[in-house]
Design a protein around this nucleic acid. Sequence first.
RNA 1: UGGGGCGUAGCCAAGUGGUAAGGCAUCGGGUUUUGAUCCCGUGUACCGCAGGUUCGAAUCCUGCCGCCCCAGCCA
Length: 557
Amino acid sequence: MNEKNPSQKNDFIREIIRDDISENIHEKIVTRFPPEPNGYLHIGHAKSICLNFGVAEEFKGLCNLRFDDTNPTKEDQRYIDAIKFDVDWLGFNTENNIRYTSDYFGQLYDWAIELVNKGLAYVDDLSPEEMRAYRGTLTEPGVDSPTRNRSIAENLDLLERMKNGEYEEGEKSLRAKIDMQSGNLNLRDPVIYRIIRANHPRTKNDWCIYPMYDFGHGQSDAIEHVTHSLCTLEFEDHRPLYEWFLENLPIPSKPKQYEFSRLNLSHTILSKRRLFKLIEDGYVSGWNDPRMPTLAGLRRRGVPPTAIRDFVGRLGITKSDGIVEMSYFENTIREHLNLTAQRRMAVLNPIKIVIENYPEDPDFKDELEAINNPNNENDGIRKLLFSREIYIEHDDFMENPTKKFFRLIPGGEVRLRYAYLITCKELIKDKEGNIIELRCHYDPESRGGNAPDGRKVKGTLHWVSANYSKKATINLYNELFTEAIPGSNGNWIEDINNNSVESLSNCFVEPSILDSKPNTTIQFERLGYFCADIDSTKDNPIFNRTVPLRDTWGKKN
RNA sequence: UGGGGCGUAGCCAAGUGGUAAGGCAUCGGGUUUUGAUCCCGUGUACCGCAGGUUCGAAUCCUGCCGCCCCAGCCA
């Protein structure tokens, strides 16, 4: 709904932007989405992407996708490529607006020199351990470093040598000279350049010193004429530092930082560190495991990008942090898929039915018509072949039914969707007493699903022809964690759901299902939404359950 | 005992001094060849608590409580 009318979206950030526009403060609204290429994007990032790109769209501005690549020990081209792909997949155009903080390494270095010249930065000899000790604590002020008051000339010389690779990692650093007594730890002479001897994905070995986030971010925003630099709450107390650099440097524009709360989703984790751990320790198969909250995982799971955009749009932008229920996300996915997904039939746990009074002639072709999507006439109809032997869902039969069970029972009549009414005549069991087959009779007059005499049949079952269906593997995915907040009772690893995936290999699907593509999610009637896995082939078809249909019956029983 | 934020129903969230929107969930009911969808109905929110200002406060003031973030040469 918000999606349909973006101009109606209202939150404190858009309010600020509208005010700025009405006061003619900016020529054009510019935002940026600044991921560090050290992992894959997840749904939390989608919130930021939709905000930044969404705002740019709504106010006819621009949004840059800027890779914040200031730490070559963690970053990789692989992630740059994956992030571009994901942003694109979400539906935002990045063709001409990709930037890298590393584009500005030269300018940033010049500005570091400028800060030294102004007496606002110095080269420090403290080791990381010593620096920590000098920094003080949350309640105790820090102490000035012994090398804090070197001459400008000496600092200039030392900085130059740092850049030229004359020192080892950790031996020296460049620090902003602000205030070691500040209550805000970010202002206690933060390091702005450190020595890192690593190959950078873009600048290779051009540099051995790299700017810290705080020194790179605001200035990059300024260079790009970003007007509204939107980030998450944990950067709130970096804002004074962000502004300090902008005030003390001859920057080409004056961006402003605003913070909003990041997305938390129940029953999953949205921390890159933890997602890495799941992969490294083999709890999932990779960044694109369908159980992962990554965009790559959601894509493989069959979640349409429009559903993700709509979902984060419904959440709103505020400064209060909370946990959004996973079921809310699933509901949004269903809402989208209900309108767009074509319907097909598949049987997950088959039980065979033989229709005793049905023609035995193998050349007899009984072609039925089925509607592809009741919500979209343009999707048309398809033909289904019926046969004497079919499969229905094991759960759709009960030998000793409970009172409200209105599916197939001994002696009972039920409708096979788009086909016939059948009545159960006999159960065939194996030696252990398990039902292995049902013998039924059909009413030839009920072709299509209704009897001419108008008798009411409450239950309608999905089915698949034993002769014409195809065998497939179907993965049923459930929540990755058993706890709404993993780790809330101790170790988050212990809250991993051991039943997060159930792989069924004896499933039967309509033949047409084998033609579906991984990016086209379809509904298996009465079961849920599914899509072909990226590893699915004609010979070994594999489908992933995106999300089940709502099941008020199953919930009660 | 430091600094920065946040607190409106189970969840998200409007509200910006005039007497508490909406969505999701829940629980009923109707339609239905998906027990889905769709439609209708359904909530005593002590607006974190306590005072104060005011004819009137979720909105202003004071005090308190709770929760989140910050002590990387990570972002």
